[in-house]
Nucleic acid binder design. Structure first.
Lengths: 261, 261
DNA sequence: AAGTGGTCTAGACCACCGG
DNA sequence: CGGTGGTCTAGACCACTTT
């Protein structure tokens, strides 16, 4: 006995996409979910959770897999996000992240009328892995200071960062309160080091491993990777960062004069 | 009758992830697929296709959905990619895209020993949509030149671009062969306009609509959006671009002096 | 303890691509 | 037209979170 391909969704089938023969069910579901999202009112400070998957299944007369396809689409668009095993939530608007503004995280967030918080996961001196050593012009295995933090906007964990510092530049820096102070402020005021040049590398990946766990991100969801190498006023490399952002949490921007005119 | 939760995979279960109680099947599958990918030899110029899904199902004794979960993971990591309804392929290494190098697409690609090609989809004068009008300092509905192109690296379509130009800057530019010439070269040599400042906006989304279709990207797969507003040597906005890249095709880079020291 | 999302089974039909 | 990937059904068990 073959299961008939039913189309049980009782939704208004607006914009039937001329040029495309059939609109997949998940696409119509997507529209219904968007209406649901709008009806929930999206711009609060409290995390706004969607109904349980099984409830949405009942409401829309569909299957778990199809529903999750539609949710995954919206997740990719950045309209909703997941906390691992906790549910689906409406995504707040993106933080505007100007790569060349030279702003510390807290300043950047607060300048956009949002609340920043930082959680220190670890701060210790460790032997440099090869890829870190290369960036910092050190030899593999030599000591570097490693700082791992999680940062949140309005209580939502959005960023996992690993810093690696050249210890010859920042003796004793691990003794400061690294959850409260911006690193760049410490660099300047305690060590008279200014960041005068930044090399960025940006790419997209997925969460998984420590970064995913720290952000409560479901393994496999999209992440924005930002790697940064910082030089001081003398052109010397002093530290590097590896940032992993929830992809829907930021919009990157920069304004500059291109070379090779 | 309840289906027993079998674990039929006969793969070496390397690194059982201490600290995590159970490794999901798709995770072990992922490793098996990685081995398969390595065995296929990844760095050719010919697109290297994976076996059909049903064949991989048989080979790994698993289900379609589980297999696709694993494949989707690898797709998110940028190790493999899809062409819509055509199959899964091994992803070539990423193009290094220096945002501030001021290089035209062909020059950038060829400087990395790869082959660039461009397909012109449309070139016409159209009324400006609101968001374009705003960027170009025009009023909504006023005429702008619109150029849509698809660009490929080593034959693989990786980039969909829409340009919108201020027609007062570039009269008659649509009559040039826009598949062969770089726009910036035309700007300079035919109109004596140099791009002296660029405003970028970067974000991640998913394919769907014209961009996805033009790249043969499966709807819902990850895309890197790059929006660009170009100013000439007099500070005047002359055009803007909307680029959609296959997320695995590029790695963005830039080096600059941050403000707000 | 109840409920949630994460994972998985074992199929089926359909649209589309390539030969 | 055969084979492929895209979509969908109708469930189940499990790990984990929350009550």
């Amino acid at each position: 006995m073959s299961a008939p391909r039913t189309q049980p969704i009782a939704l208004e089938c607006h914009h039937s996409t001329p040029g495309s023969v059939s609109t997949p069910t998940w696409h119509r579901l997507r529209d219904a979910l968007l209406a649901l999202i709008d009806s929930l009112g999206n711009n609060r400070k409290r995390p706004c959770r969607l109904p349980a998957e099984r409830e949405m299944i009942a409401r829309f007369s569909t299957t778990r897999i199809t529903l999750r396809d539609a949710l995954t689409q919206l997740e990719g668009e950045g309209r909703i996000y997941r906390e691992n095993r906790r549910g689906w939530f409406i995504a707040p608007s993106r933080l505007h992240y100007d790569l060349l503004a030279g702003l510390a995280f807290h300043d950047m967030v607060e300048s956009q009328q949002r609340q920043a918080s930082t959680l220190l996961l670890s701060a210790s001196t460790v032997p440099a892995p090869l890829h870190i050593a290369r960036r910092l012009w050190l030899s593999e295995g030599s000591a570097v200071q490693r700082i791992v933090r999680v940062r949140a906007i309005d209580g939502r964990r959005v960023l996992y960062v690993e810093h690696h510092l050249r210890p010859d530049c920042f003796p004793g820096i691990l003794d400061f309160d690294l959850a409260q102070h911006s690193l760049t402020a410490l660099y300047r005021h305690e060590y008279a080091i200014r960041i005068a040049r930044v090399d960025y590398e940006l790419g997209s990946t997925i969460f998984g491993g420590p970064a995913g766990e720290a952000l409560h991100a479901t393994p496999g969801t999209a992440a924005q990777r930002i790697t940064r190498i910082n030089r001081d006023q003398n052109g010397r490399v002093v530290d590097c960062d590896d940032e992993y952002w929830r992809h829907d949490a930021i919009e990157l921007a920069l304004s500059a004069v291109p070379r090779g005119g």
